[in-house]
């Protein structure tokens, strides 16, 4: 799941400074689940912006909309009917991940689309209100050799050959309560009696499948050349 957090209201306020009529567009997907861009957050942000405008004696109309998944054109298009003329609103604030912001912008070519969230990482809730990073989307999964614990996403230095010298008592040298991924891997492999897999040298990784290979595009063979 994509984890995101809302930008500070000050940041959002500055972004919408030029506009008198805006719409906040939430998403019912990941960002609802991570409490950043669901119906509640849209309503709260709208109320806060209206209050702020009232406090400053500024005219501001805020519309609230929810989209099933903001990363799909088909779900966004009904919105185009809600705002047929561009003069209806002057700007859209997307409370979705960065993907949603861009999809929204593609559907509204003549309207400014602003991000209301900071898209943080791919992760999961450890418990209510606490999310942790688990995958880096590097494009070439190595979890088979690392005891199903990802050192790319979870080691601060994305090391591939074991813990660096900064690992102490299971914690990473960068602090902040970050666990040493390699310590976890070591313990898990020891439990599975598979420590031997750590003896062999992991050769340099092919990062071309990560973002370093340029923007990625995935095509299922059977859909190639289809319209």
């Amino acid at each position: 799941m994509i984890i995101a957090e809302r930008k500070s209201i000050t940041d959002i306020w500055q972004m919408i400074e030029p506009f008198k009529r805006i719409a906040l567009i939430g998403c019912r997907g990941c960002v609802t689940v991570c409490m950043a861009g669901g119906a509640k957050e849209v309503a709260v942000l709208a109320a806060a912006l209206r209050l702020a405008a009232h406090e400053r004696g500024r005219e501001l109309v805020v519309f609230e909309e929810m989209v099933e998944r903001q990363c799909e054109y088909e779900f966004i298009r009904p919105l185009q009917r809600s705002y047929p003329q561009e003069q209806a609103v002057e700007g859209l604030v997307s409370l979705a991940c960065g993907i949603g912001v861009q999809a929204l912008a593609e559907c509204f070519p003549h309207l400014p689309v602003l991000p209301g969230l900071n898209t943080s990482f791919l992760g999961m809730p450890e418990r209510s209100g606490v999310w942790v990073e688990r995958c880096h989307a590097c494009g070439q999964c190595i979890l088979d050799s690392t005891g199903a614990i990802c050192p790319i996403a979870r080691c601060a230095k994305n090391l591939l050959n074991g813990p660096c010298g900064g690992s102490q008592e299971g914690m990473c040298e960068i602090g902040n309560g970050v666990e040493c991924a390699w310590h976890l891997i070591y313990e898990r492999l020891a439990r599975l009696n598979r420590l031997d897999s750590l003896q062999s040298l992991a050769l340099p990784k092919n990062w071309a499948k990560d973002r370093d290979g340029g923007p990625r595009r995935l095509i299922r063979e059977d859909w190639e050349d289809e319209v």
């Binding site: 050959n161 074991g162 813990p163 010298g165 690992s167 102490q168 008592e169 313990e187 420590l195 040298l201």
Partner: peptide
């Protein structure tokens, strides 16, 4: 190369050094 006998997991430190020597 360097080796840190004072980092954890302690048991892994010699294994890691062996990897470095092998490399």
């Amino acid at each position: 190369c360097v080796a840190n006998p004072f980092a954890d997991p302690f048991e892994f430190r010699a294994i890691r050094l062996e990897k470095k020597v092998a490399a």
